[in-house]
Amino acid sequence: MSILLDKNSRIAIQGITGREAAMVAQHSLDYGTKILAGVTPGKEGQEVHGIPVYNTLKKAVQVHNINTTVVYVPPAFVYDAVLEAVAAGISLVIIATENVPQLDAMKFLTRAKQAGVRVIGPNSVGMITPKDRVKVGAIGGDKVERCFVPGRIGVISRSGGMTAESSWMVKRAGFGVSTSVSIGGDALIGTSIKDLLLLYQADHETDAVVTFSEPGTHFEEEAAELLKSGGFTKPLFSFIAGRFTERMPEGTVFGHAGAMISGGAGKPSQKMEKLRQAGAHVLEHFDDLTRLMKEILTPERI
């Protein structure tokens, strides 16, 4: 098992003819992931690296029974792309696009929630289940195995790049990943850390989870509450970057749009304290991860 993404995923790329999306399609195919269709209005009949392009997602679903899409359209068109996915009956939508207007995000997240559609992102670099060689989005680039090898550790990252780096640290420690998820660097995203912890808890092939976090939002505080209430009982290793921002004037953004501290909420030190109190293994230095994993994830413990 894994979470959300496996060999039964039937994937299409919305906006496949764009430069970035076409490169991602090529890398995905090289890795062994089947990308069944692409959607770009006005380009039906064309192919991108052998993948058929359709005008509408509806048609792609009819022909290929698509259940998962990754959105690569420009910011102004993301709102419509997500509505199209919801209308077409897609169950998992990963939004790669960055700089989506906040009002649009609130609207499509509300709509997706009403329809029971799971959204990852916006501003997600994608997700990957190495056991089935299935990846969506740029995650892993052209050398996927450098960072992502099959294993039993779940990885959740608010930073796209650090999804790879964290999975690489897991590999460095001698482990591999079940599913790694870049949840998106924005504050308004479809799936939070807590949401994913619940899925990893239920997954028999995930023994522990690593999270990479940043300042801002309440995602880590919610995760801590979940641990406290007994909703997640596997080992959790958490790192929160950006402690230096606490010494900067309030309200300044460093890094992702979601990484803003305001009114004292969202400070890394507070997040670390809450997670620690809830029983998570909170890393002082990111490099401590390898040592701690080796210490804690001994065969008798998992």
Partner: peptide, 9 residues
């Protein structure tokens, strides 16, 4: 990278 930069700093 947003996260990588925070970590580096």
């Amino acid at each position: 990278g947003g996260g990588g930069s925070l970590l580096s700093f």
